[in-house]
Computed example of a mutant assay.
Amino acid sequence: MPSRYAPLRAAAGELLLADLLTDRALRDLHARLYENVWTWAGLYRQRELSIGIDPVMIAVELRSTLENLLYRWEHTSDWTAKQLAMATHAEAVRIHPFVDGNGRSTRLLADLVLLAATPDDEPAVVLDWDLDKSLYIPALRRFDQARDPSELTDLVDLVAVEED
């Protein structure tokens, strides 16, 4: 199980974007979240589902997508940290690498990306995932078409990270 202080570690600069935006990081996160639930935790799905990409393409697509997001973040300035986090989540959901547990693991990854991408002089925040699914699901589909995280970013509020 991941440390319950992982968001604080990301906010403290201990988790770097280059470490988070990797296929290994997402597999690791999924494995840690579900290792006590499923024997296949952290393993890519091997069968077709009604959502997601062809299982044969998961590893390559996830790796290249996350590398592209990191490259864009490092070489452009048109996205906010929140937009990067939402794009990370939406891309991972689009790929749908696992049989189950994709939503929870990709939402956690997005929160960690947000914390790692937020400048040190700004307060630590995470995404408020308590949102209207009737608006969220169509916005995810529109992201798939345009690759623009703006609509998703507008739907999801931020909440402050509180230390225990």
Score class of each variant (00 low, 15 high):
residue 129 W to Q: 00
residue 35 E to G: 12
residue 116 A to F: 03
residue 9 R to G: 02
residue 114 L to N: 01
residue 103 G to V: 12
residue 135 L to G: 03
residue 145 Q to S: 07
residue 145 Q to M: 09
residue 120 D to V: 02
residue 103 G to R: 05
residue 126 V to F: 00
residue 121 D to M: 01
residue 88 T to H: 02
residue 53 I to K: 10
residue 124 A to H: 09
residue 101 G to A: 08
residue 101 G to S: 12
residue 110 A to D: 02
residue 136 Y to N: 01
residue 27 R to H: 09
residue 44 Y to T: 11
residue 66 L to D: 02
residue 116 A to D: 06
residue 153 T to V: 08
residue 11 A to G: 06
residue 117 A to P: 01
residue 93 V to E: 08
residue 20 L to H: 10
residue 30 H to C: 03
residue 97 P to F: 10
residue 152 L to H: 05
residue 72 R to I: 15
residue 22 T to F: 10
residue 37 V to W: 11
residue 10 A to Q: 03
residue 67 E to A: 05
residue 130 D to T: 12
residue 80 T to G: 00
residue 26 L to Y: 15
residue 115 L to P: 06
residue 147 R to I: 05
residue 46 Q to M: 05
residue 112 L to D: 07
residue 96 H to I: 11
residue 65 T to F: 06
residue 41 A to N: 03
residue 42 G to E: 08
residue 85 A to I: 00
residue 110 A to C: 01
residue 20 L to M: 09
residue 4 R to Y: 08
residue 104 R to D: 04
residue 74 E to A: 13
residue 103 G to N: 12
residue 31 A to C: 15
residue 155 L to I: 10
residue 142 R to K: 11
residue 54 D to I: 04
residue 104 R to I: 13
residue 132 D to Y: 15
residue 163 E to S: 05
residue 53 I to W: 04
residue 137 I to A: 15
residue 43 L to P: 00
residue 118 T to S: 09
residue 53 I to G: 11
residue 159 V to N: 01
residue 81 A to I: 09
residue 136 Y to W: 06
residue 40 W to A: 05
residue 12 A to R: 10
residue 29 L to R: 15
residue 142 R to Y: 07
residue 9 R to T: 04
residue 148 D to H: 08
residue 20 L to E: 06
residue 46 Q to L: 10
residue 75 H to S: 08
residue 102 N to P: 10
residue 30 H to Q: 04
residue 19 D to V: 06
residue 68 N to C: 01
residue 85 A to K: 04
residue 81 A to P: 14
residue 144 D to N: 13
residue 128 D to L: 03
residue 46 Q to E: 10
residue 69 L to N: 02
residue 111 D to G: 05
residue 52 G to L: 11
residue 122 E to M: 13
residue 14 E to Y: 11
residue 144 D to T: 01
residue 25 A to K: 13
residue 34 Y to S: 00
residue 113 V to T: 08
residue 127 L to W: 05
residue 63 R to Y: 04
residue 61 E to V: 14
residue 158 L to P: 02
residue 67 E to H: 09
residue 117 A to W: 02
residue 34 Y to A: 02
residue 106 T to D: 11
residue 55 P to H: 03
residue 51 I to Q: 12
residue 110 A to R: 06
residue 94 R to G: 01
residue 36 N to I: 03
residue 45 R to I: 06
residue 26 L to E: 14
residue 93 V to L: 10
residue 143 F to H: 05
residue 147 R to A: 14
residue 149 P to I: 00
residue 6 A to C: 12
residue 34 Y to G: 01
residue 80 T to Q: 00
